[in-house]
């Protein structure tokens, strides 16, 4: 799968939501202390699954299924990483917004 273009390093991360019919995506910076370890990944996958959308997470050259805790874990996403979250399906905009918000509040409830 081709990776969407992401901003240059150092560039401020925009929460720009691109809306093309039933697909939405946004970039977000991982700011929590541990990165996307199992516990944050659990929360992310749970939310992605509940959204009902197909969610993909892109990081650098790798990407994974956002509702798969195992794929997220394998991406070994560290603090400071920039992610692109991409959702497809009904309610994709809300899904992306919710997931971005989760990452921004450091995966806390």
């Amino acid at each position: 799968m081709a990776l969407p273009e992401s901003g240059e390093a150092g560039e401020p991360v925009a929460d720009a939501v691109t809306d093309t019919a039933l697909q939405a995506s946004a970039d977000v910076l991982v700011t929590n202390e541990q990165g996307l370890h199992l516990r944050p990944a659990t929360e992310f996958a749970r939310l992605a699954m509940a959204s009902g959308c197909a969610v993909r997470v892109h990081h650098g050259t790798s990407n994974g299924d956002g509702s798969s805790i195992l794929e997220l874990a394998m991406m070994a996403i560290r603090p400071g990483a920039r992610l692109r979250i991409e959702a497809t399906g009904v309610g994709c905009e809300q899904a992306v917004a919710d997931l971005v918000a989760l990452v921004k509040r450091d995966f806390c409830d």
Binding site: A41, T42, S67
Partner: peptide, 16 residues
């Protein structure tokens, strides 16, 4: 409970 929910999420993982 955080550990058990992680385990549960792995069991639900579609890839698994």
């Amino acid at each position: 409970s955080a550990i058990f929910s992680t385990h549960d999420m792995v069991l639900q993982d579609p890839k698994l």
